[in-house]
Amino acid sequence: MSFIWMIIVGLVAGLLARAIKPGSDPMGWIMTIVLGIVGAMLGGFIASLIGINADGGFTGLLFSVIGAIILLFLYEMIVNKRRV
C-alpha cells in the first residue's frame, strides 16, 4: 500500500471512529490521521489474531475503524487522568 493511500485510509478510519464513538474528542486533523493509521495497524493485528484476512476492502476498513475506536477510548482515559 502506498504512503498516500495509507494516509487517506487513516483519515477515513479516524473520522469514522470519531463519528461512531460518543463524546467530544478535541484533536485536530493530524491526530485524526495518526489515530486512523495506528488504529488500522491495531485492527489488522486483532484480525490476524482471530484468523481473518483484513488486507483491504470493507473488512480492512472495518477493522481499522474498530482499532481506531479502541485507541480513542484509551486516548480519552489518558487525557482524563491528566486533567484530574
Rank of each mutant, 00 (worst) to 15 (best):
M1Q: 09
S2C: 13
S2P: 14
F3P: 13
I4K: 04
W5Y: 10
I7Q: 06
I7R: 00
I7C: 02
G10Y: 14
L11F: 12
V12W: 00
V12L: 09
V12M: 10
V12A: 15
A13P: 09
A13T: 10
A13R: 01
G14K: 05
G14Q: 06
A17C: 10
R18L: 12
A19P: 04
I20D: 11
I20F: 01
K21A: 15
K21N: 15
S24Y: 06
S24M: 12
D25L: 13
D25P: 04
P26N: 09
M27T: 14
G28C: 07
W29M: 12
I30M: 08
I30F: 14
I30C: 04
M31Q: 11
M31K: 11
M31V: 08
M31L: 06
T32V: 07
T32G: 00
I33C: 03
V34W: 12
L35D: 02
G36R: 07
I37W: 10
G39Q: 04
G39N: 00
A40I: 07
A40M: 12
A40N: 02
L42W: 00
G43Y: 09
G43A: 12
G43M: 13
G44T: 13
F45A: 14
A47R: 13
A47P: 10
L49E: 03
L49I: 10
L49Q: 03
I50H: 03
I50M: 08
I50R: 06
G51D: 02
I52K: 00
N53R: 09
N53E: 08
N53A: 10
A54W: 12
D55Y: 13
G56S: 05
T59V: 02
T59A: 05
G60V: 04
L61G: 15
L61E: 12
L62W: 15
L62K: 12
L62D: 08
L62N: 13
F63Y: 05
S64R: 03
S64Y: 09
V65I: 01
I66Q: 11
G67M: 07
I69S: 06
L71D: 01
L71Q: 01
F73I: 00
F73R: 07
Y75N: 08
Y75E: 14
E76A: 08
E76K: 05
E76V: 03
M77Q: 06
I78Q: 02
I78Y: 01
V79T: 04
N80P: 04
N80H: 00
N80M: 03
K81G: 05
R82W: 01
R82L: 09
R83L: 12
V84P: 12
